[in-house]
Computed example of a mutant assay.
Amino acid sequence: MKKVIFGGTFDPIHNGHIHIAYEALYNLEIDEIIFMPAGQPPHKSNKRVTGGKIRYEMVLKAIEGEERFSVSDYEIKNKGLSYTYNTLIHFNKIEPDTEWFFLVGVDSLMALKTWMNIDIILDNCTLVVFSRSGFLEKNVLEMKARLEAEYNTNIIFLQMPLLDISSTTIKEKIAQHKVVNYLLPYKVERMINKYNLYRDKV
């Protein structure tokens, strides 16, 4: 079995996330994509983040109907900050025969040296990096090569058509009372309205 863990705050999950998941599913011939909403992401400790249960429910609604998509509440249930190396150790222990991949954007690749226990992360998965706007491919490939050499690993650069959507932009539009239904799944928008989310300025 080949499975991808797709980590993120997902605050909120949007069509860009779904697009990335499908590209990984088809290009890497993956059996399952596991969305992993972060519990308390250390890089966002100074930012306001919607409660984990609500973000988990939004992901659940967004992926309904796709048998190869699932969502895990592992990080949300854990107390303290959410660190990727702990998540990967956990999943490798419960499914040691699964080939694990971890999906991140190029922004995470460029900042990977600031992550805790990079060696453990790269020992427990194959890192898959998807392109994002604002980064030169030349710089991304140089960083990829440096990390591969330093940690004796293989990193997959997943080139795909970009859907330039961000959770921050969606929240800003909602605060400005603008239409966002073209940016995220219908059921996610319903949840945002149900819980009256993102009405304040970001």
Rank of each mutant, 00 (worst) to 15 (best):
R55S: 07
N124R: 08
E137N: 10
R132V: 06
G51F: 05
F10E: 03
V129A: 03
K173H: 05
N92K: 11
G52M: 04
I94G: 10
P42Y: 13
T98F: 00
I94E: 15
F157R: 10
I5F: 10
V202G: 08
K138N: 12
Y151Q: 12
M58V: 08
N193T: 02
F35E: 01
N117T: 01
S133T: 09
Y26V: 12
D73F: 03
Y182I: 13
A175D: 07
Y186G: 07
L184Y: 09
A175H: 07
I20K: 10
K171W: 03
Y85L: 11
A149Q: 15
I18E: 11
K77Q: 15
K138R: 14
K194T: 08
E64I: 13
K44A: 09
R48D: 10
L25D: 07
K113H: 14
Y56D: 02
L158E: 06
K79C: 12
G105Y: 01
F101E: 09
K144E: 10
T126G: 03
N181P: 05
R55Y: 04
G105I: 06
V4H: 04
I89V: 12
I94M: 11
C125Q: 09
V104W: 02
L28Y: 01
I54L: 04
D11V: 02
A24K: 04
P37G: 07
L88H: 04
D200K: 13
E99I: 12
Y22F: 15
T126F: 00
M58K: 03
T84L: 05
Q176R: 11
